[in-house]
C-alpha cells in the first residue's frame, strides 16, 4: 500500500515538526510513505468562504498530486474533511473520487486502518487536555460528541491512553469549539479570540499542562491567544506525542 503524505500549507510553513512526526510515525509502522513535492493546499480557504470556483484549480492540483496513492494521510482534520466531503468544485471523475474516498486523517488511519495497539517508544509524563477539533469530532467521527445520545468513544483518546506517563484531564465543556473556524478567525476576530481564551481557561482550570489536538489550525489559534495573554500552557499535535516527543 502506497501512502501519499499530505502536509497542509500552514503545517508545512509553521509546524514542520508535525509533518516530520507524522512521516516518522507512519514509517515506524512499516508504511511506504511518499511526500509528493508539488502539493500545496486542499482548497479549503476558498471553499469555506463559498468561493468554490476559485478553489477549482487548487483542487485539481491536489488530485493530480495524490491520485497515484492507495491512501492519502494528513495530520489535519479540517483539510481531510474538505477533501472527503467538500472537494466538489471540479468534475467528479473516477480519479477525483478515488482521492476523496481514500483521504484519511492520521488518527483515523492509526485507529481504524492500522489498528495500532501500542506506541512502545512514546512517553509523555504530563497532564494533557485533549482538544477535539469540530471537524475531526463531528465531520470525521473521531468520537461521540457530548450533545449526541449514545455510547461514548474517542479514537484520539484511545490512542493517547497507550502512551506511557500521560494523564488525560477532563474539561468543563469537552467539545466546545475553540473559535478558529478558518476565515472566521479574521472576519469575527473578537468572538474568535474570546472563544479561544475561554477554551484555554477551561483547560488551565482543570490542570492541563498541554493542549493536544489532531488539528494544528486550532492549536495555532489557541497558542496565539495564549501567547497574547501570557497563559502558561503548551500545545502539541497528537502526532508528535504518539511519535515519542517527551515535552
Amino acid at each position: 500500500m502506497r501512502i501519499g503524505l499530505f502536509v497542509p500549507c500552514f503545517i508545512d510553513a509553521f509546524y514542520p515538526d508535525v509533518g516530520i512526526a507524522t512521516l516518522e510515525l507512519l514509517e515506524r509502522f512499516g508504511c511506504d510513505v511518499d511526500y509528493p513535492f508539488d502539493q500545496t493546499c486542499c482548497g479549503q480557504p476558498m471553499v469555506n468562504s463559498g468561493c468554490h470556483d476559485e478553489a477549482a484549480a487548487t483542487e485539481a492540483l491536489f488530485v493530480k498530486n495524490f491520485a497515484k496513492y492507495d491512501r492519502i494521510v494528513a495530520p489535519s482534520g479540517s483539510c481531510v474533511h474538505q477533501v472527503r466531503d467538500n472537494l466538489t468544485a471540479i468534475e467528479q471523475t473516477p480519479e477525483v473520487k478515488h482521492v476523496r474516498e481514500n483521504t484519511l486523517e492520521l488518527v483515523e488511519f492509526l485507529h481504524d486502518e492500522l489498528q495500532v495497539e501500542a506506541f512502545p517508544w512514546a512517553n509523555f509524563p504530563h497532564r494533557v487536555g485533549y482538544h477535539d477539533s469540530c471537524n475531526t469530532l463531528r465531520n470525521l467521527g473521531h468520537g461521540k460528541p457530548s450533545e449526541l445520545h449514545g455510547e461514548y468513544f474517542s479514537k484520539p483518546r484511545t490512542l493517547l491512553e497507550k502512551v506511557a506517563g500521560i494523564e488525560l484531564v477532563a474539561i468543563d465543556r469537552p467539545d466546545e469549539c475553540c473559535g478558529f473556524g478558518g476565515t472566521f478567525s479574521v472576519t469575527e476576530p473578537e468572538v474568535s479570540t474570546q472563544m479561544g481564551q475561554d477554551k484555554i481557561a477551561d483547560h488551565g482550570r482543570n490542570g492541563a499542562e498541554y493542549i493536544v489536538s489532531a488539528d494544528s489550525s486550532c492549536l495555532m489559534h489557541q497558542s496565539g491567544c495564549a501567547a497574547r495573554i501570557g497563559a502558561p500552557i503548551q500545545f502539541k499535535h497528537i502526532a508528535e506525542i504518539l511519535n515519542g516527543a517527551s515535552q
Binding site: D12, F14, P16, G19, P189, E190, G224, C225, R228
Partner: peptide
C-alpha cells in the same frame, strides 16, 4: 491584521519548512 488584534502570529520555524526538511533529510 485582524488575527493580531487578540492573538500572536505563529513564529516561523528555525530550520525552515517541512518541505525544506524533507528535501534535506530524505
Amino acid at each position: 491584521n485582524a488575527w493580531g488584534e487578540g492573538r500572536e502570529m505563529p513564529s516561523p520555524p528555525d530550520n525552515g519548512t517541512f518541505h525544506d526538511w524533507y528535501k534535506r533529510n530524505r
